[in-house]
Design a protein around this nucleic acid. Structure first.
Lengths: 353, 353
DNA sequence: GTGAAAGCGCTAACAA
DNA sequence: TTGTTAGCGCTTTCAC
């Protein structure tokens, strides 16, 4: 049977994996050492020898055993990515962009994810999975893991946090400037004339990003002379919605949500309660990632996912490059911390009072 | 300096990684073998010895080198997942559910993704990355990789395709029943009285799922006595939209899109063109994953992501379990192929003629 | 240009 | 119960 047109054809009846360099070397009539060099194209070897080795490797369907290779070489070519549950489009997009960017820069990423609701144990487990692989670097895109858990490894492997700010020393970040986001949205709402506003957010231990946004909203609103009702809810976007609408009936003219998910929940509830948006109540969110947000006319803020992803990967790449320091407890290289600001999307769910 | 409350504290000034079993063993005054056993809690050892070893390991911040461990053990505990670009919520959700399910069943997943638009080279590269890690199994959740590329490895490692149907032998699947989805949506549109319909889809090489849906739509519509205009567009959801609206002006009363993304594009364009939905034209999509789809009133079909994810992981787990066969080219174990049907979501974007 | 030899860190019989 | 002994598959000096 002739092999298919694929370049991955393997021996007729034979294996393909579990073919070792030794097999390839033997088939080509050279030693393991030569085969290794020729296969990765490094070191010295005769061009024609390489050709023969490559041909045999392909014929046998050889796939290098990465574990053995990296173990022997003592280094790793991949960067680990810890990701939060990607069912949230904001994380899905971040994931996608991190991946693209890494690919563009020639970095290999392996990802482990953690359920959105998981507690410490699972996070630590995931961290260990990655560290156990002796990844060359770590990009952390989940708030669920604490600085204390990361810090012990910060001087052994570069760690870049993506999305969320981090105060621990030695851990670099490329993060969203959530306080600014809150401020921008609040300013918009103030400019529309609202002076009695509900701020609906997840509690700080549920979503730190939401907490930062909400705090900034509150401050800006208060500074602008508005009366503010701050509602700290649980993770489920429907939580706190009833209270928010109750506050509206008591005179609030706008509900500012710390995320688009909550905004959607508020709009659903408003519709169900017969309140018109923005007629009876203005509503704002934050994220701006949802496809279709424009059709809904969401008033939100588009977070700079692309910029954060690019910066995170770029930082990682730089940390991985020709410098080799900090083997002692040096502060020779300072911690990189970059914040990125998104753009306001006015929409039609918020109108002048 | 006392260590933080974290359970990951490492030696004061010392490393944490690059601590080996030998170090732990030495510190505890035992041999490597004993340390290994105690650390993984298998085999024989004195409880008090274990306690001492565990304590030393923690004190030193020991993290087992997975590569070495799996290389030595000759097996791997992780399953590889090949994923398509997660910026599409449908894939993001599938990813999330696969992850959850794997976790529930005690399977470790490592993921590599491929950009949505990447061609063969990148796909093969990703496949090799996973195979190089000698993963115990492979779950493929991207249509970008062909059966021909997968097949050579099908008898060396269990492969389960998630989402898309597969005809190659030896490759199991848990997939969406897209033809049924197309039929269900078309039946709905027929039942609303439409007899002049545009079907807007990605070409088969752009999205096989869309192609399957669109084909079924067309057949069902034709069988129902409708006149059908089939538009095969490129990957970008805006492609083909103008043609679709042109057809509407020529008398079509409904535009059936093969995905929700295209549906959104059509709605945007309709709005821009001053056509009311569903007044002037009914529009349908397919996926039903978008948060906020309900607020938009999208007429769509919710694909059974959860069922597919659960089935894919369950199949994988079963393939990984106590049976060990097919070392020869046996057909002893038949190929598992499960199709799942979603549920119609009527919405308000499609109305009676 | 090529090969021989010594491991990388860990596991798994088998002895002790 | 614990230690000894071989490797897993690959890379990498260092001679030839």
């Amino acid at each position: 049977m002739s092999s298919s047109s694929s370049s991955l054809s393997s021996e007729p009846g034979g294996p393909g994996l579990r073919v070792t360099v030794s097999d390839v070397a033997a088939a080509a009539g050279v030693s393991r050492a030569t085969a290794t060099r020729a296969l990765k194209g490094e070191g010295r070897f005769a061009p024609e020898t390489q050709e023969r080795i490559l041909a045999e490797a392909e014929r046998l369907g050889y796939v290098r055993n990465t574990m053995a290779a990296e173990l022997a070489a003592g280094r790793t070519g991949t960067v680990g990515l810890m990701l939060r549950d990607a069912s949230n489009p904001a994380y899905g997009l971040l994931f996608s962009r991190l991946q693209d960017e890494a690919h563009r820069r020639g970095l290999d990423l392996v990802t482990v994810t953690i359920g959105a609701d998981e507690q410490g144990a699972e996070q630590v487990n995931a961290l260990h999975r990655l560290l156990g692989m002796r990844v060359a670097g770590l990009i952390v895109a989940t708030g669920g893991i604490t600085a204390a858990q990361l810090e012990p490894f910060a001087d052994q492997v570069p760690i870049v946090r993506a999305g969320r700010v981090e105060t621990a020393t030695g851990i670099h970040t490329a993060h969203y400037d959530d306080p600014s986001h809150g401020t921008m949205l609040a300013s918009h709402v103030l400019s529309l004339g609202h002076r009695n506003v509900v701020v609906l957010s997840g509690a700080s231990d549920v979503s730190f990003a939401e907490h930062l946004r909400a705090s900034a909203m509150r401050e800006t609103l208060v500074a602008g002379g508005a009366s503010v009702t701050l509602l700290s809810a649980g993770a489920a976007p429907t939580e706190g919605v009833d209270e928010a609408l109750a506050a509206v009936r008591d005179g609030a003219t706008a509900v500012m949500c710390a995320s688009d998910y909550r905004q959607l929940a508020v709009m659903r509830a408003s519709r169900a309660a017969g309140l018109s948006v923005p007629g009876d109540v203005s509503v704002t969110g934050c994220d701006g990632i949802l496809p279709g947000a424009d059709l809904l006319g969401l008033t939100t803020l588009r977070i700079p996912v692309e910029a954060v992803a690019a910066a995170a990967v770029e930082t990682m790449q730089r940390l991985l490059s020709p410098d080799a320091d900090s083997d002692s407890d040096s502060d020779s290289e300072s911690t990189v911390r970059q914040a990125f600001v998104g753009t306001l999307v006015p929409g039609t769910t918020a109108a002048a009072v």
